[in-house]
Design a protein around this nucleic acid. Structure first.
Lengths: 225, 225
DNA sequence: GTTGACACGTGTCTTG
DNA sequence: CAAGACACGTGTCAAC
């Protein structure tokens, strides 16, 4: 989705240059010649290398997701990578959780969960341009506000009555590639209020295919339709 | 400057358009013509897809190893994958051991937080008609999936059926190297776009379970030389 | 038929 | 200069 080309300006004129023969035909026709001929072969080895790792990754990620390996696996190359990325992200957050579990801040846990969800929403929305920008910021702002009044987040002044400034500690993904997920606009919705305590989608899945279809390690390409 | 920018300055074919249609079929050419021209373009998109995931993976693995994301990253494509494989393997071990001790006491809280955020998103989106329905369901589905793989939510499936290493892999070389994760200096000042400060609260570095030999994530190509 | 995925060989650019 | 790495376009082959 991110359009075809996420706007990748590669300012480099093709400069149609018919490379004329300028090779000096004076070569020590010995080993060098065969080195040259092995260039395709080397490329092949390189490919084999990534493919090997890819296969291992596939196995790892497949069973990490408790998806019966092989069965119903039409994972294509890029899917493996994407799934791996997602899995690593999730792994990282549970690690963070583990670090938090040391101290009795259980509330911190709760906040961490909420926060991670927020980050996930942000990440997701970043790759979706069919959702208006203002909606996105409103959503994120709202969520941030919710987080803010979730309880005192230690480290800030204990009684910071005002200024639950939307500075959510979300981890906005890696900047390198997508080029979009920058800092989202600080926006505050007027309607922030207490949170209910409920189980969410028990009976309220608009169309959410749960585990089985979408749930497990499926490709899940958001941009594709 | 090891090509940090995913946008690597390279030739960019401006998709030259062969204006001369040597065959003028009575069919609407707008269809057929673009079909043909999109052949290389599609391949390019595919590549972009894996590269995107690859870049994200690089970032993830790099910070998991607490190495500076850009500095000294001569990581080449296949290296990222291999490092990822090693990391995932080590993570699995950790997970295994962690499963014994930390049980659903705290995890439940985390899930609760995540879950609550999910509910909030759901409620918010319900009153928002300018966001496409499918996006909404996809978001919720994704979040649900995240929650699902967050960990065993009691009442779900019994313990993973011997999630042990089936190790059906033909791992060339590196017999003994169990873990890896050997960050040299566990110190990282800049910490560009690292974790949310939640982690900073506890001062817990991301995954760094075992001290490893083999310095930083060395490519370590077994067969090559 | 088309569409999408993959492996291949080659050109181009960076680096030691 | 060679060695290496990457992106590119194309041919081949399996599926809706």
């Amino acid at each position: 989705m991110p359009a075809d080309t996420p706007g990748r300006p590669r300012a480099s004129p093709p400069a149609a240059e018919p490379a004329s023969a300028r090779r000096t035909p004076s070569k020590p026709r010995s080993a060098a010649e065969h080195r040259k001929s092995s260039k395709p072969a080397m490329e092949k080895r390189r490919r084999a290398r990534v493919n090997a790792s890819l296969a291992q990754l596939k196995a790892l990620i497949l069973d990490a997701l408790s998806q019966d390996s092989a069965r119903h696996s039409k994972l294509e190359k890029a899917d493996i990578l994407e799934m791996t990325v997602r899995h690593l992200r999730s792994v990282r957050r549970v690690h963070m959780t583990a670090a938090l579990s040391a101290d009795p801040a259980v509330l911190g846990k709760y906040r961490a969960g909420f926060n991670e969800c927020l980050a996930e929403v942000n990440r997701f929305l970043a790759g979706c341009e069919d959702v208006p920008a203002d909606v996105r910021s409103r959503l994120l702002g709202h969520l941030a506000a919710c987080l803010g009044q979730l309880g005192p987040s230690r480290r800030t002044a204990p009684p910071p009555p005002a200024a639950e400034v939307p500075t959510p500690e979300v981890y906005v993904g890696s900047p390198p590639l997508p080029a979009f997920d920058g800092p989202f606009p600080p926006l505050r919705p007027g309607a922030a209020f207490a949170l209910p305590l409920l189980q969410a989608l028990t009976g309220a899945p608009p169309a959410a295919p749960l585990a089985g279809l979408q749930g497990r390690g499926v490709p899940w390409r958001p941009w594709l339709r």
